[in-house]
């Protein structure tokens, strides 16, 4: 297979590598030469091959992050916590107002801040 100048321009753009137009002939020639050696693979009978996962698959780990390195547990100082997330007042620009949680505001929450963040 012969690589054209346009092919080189195309893959250089895909790879985000600037290629000087003066280097196009040499690059096209080199790539064509290398790819010519790959043609031998078309003669291999691969009908018996099924590409699947490797025999020794990558080991699994628990789907969780590392513990959060805090001195005190999150609920002890956060206004509202749900599922490990801090709930905060909705931004005024997002409309609707009010906090995003379903739970009632705790004693730490300051409703007057809503919309002012």
């Amino acid at each position: 297979m012969s690589v054209t100048f346009d092919d080189v321009r195309h893959i250089a753009a895909l790879a985000r590598v600037g290629v000087d137009e003066r280097k196009l002939p040499a690059l096209a020639n080199e790539l064509s030469g290398i790819l010519a050696h790959m043609a031998v693979l078309t003669r291999v009978d691969t009908s018996s091959v099924e590409i699947g996962p490797p025999a020794v698959a990558t080991p699994w780990r628990a789907d969780s992050g590392p513990p959060i390195p805090l001195m005190h547990p999150l609920p002890s100082f956060a206004p509202i916590v749900r599922d490990g997330f801090l709930l905060v007042p909705r931004l005024a620009t997002h409309g609707g107002g009010g906090h995003t949680g379903d739970s009632e505001p705790s004693g730490n929450e300051r409703p007057e801040d809503e919309g002012s963040a």
Binding site: L27, L35, L41, V44, T46, V49, I51
Partner: peptide
């Protein structure tokens, strides 16, 4: 640069099956 361009070529649309997929099959052999 040569290898990045070569790698991009064999992965690009129209050539993937002929080069990369084929190479992975022969690698299995």
């Amino acid at each position: 640069t040569r290898r990045i361009l070569l790698g991009t070529y064999v992965l690009s649309a129209g050539y993937y099956d002929a080069y990369y997929k084929r190479a992975q099959e022969v690698r299995a052999l």
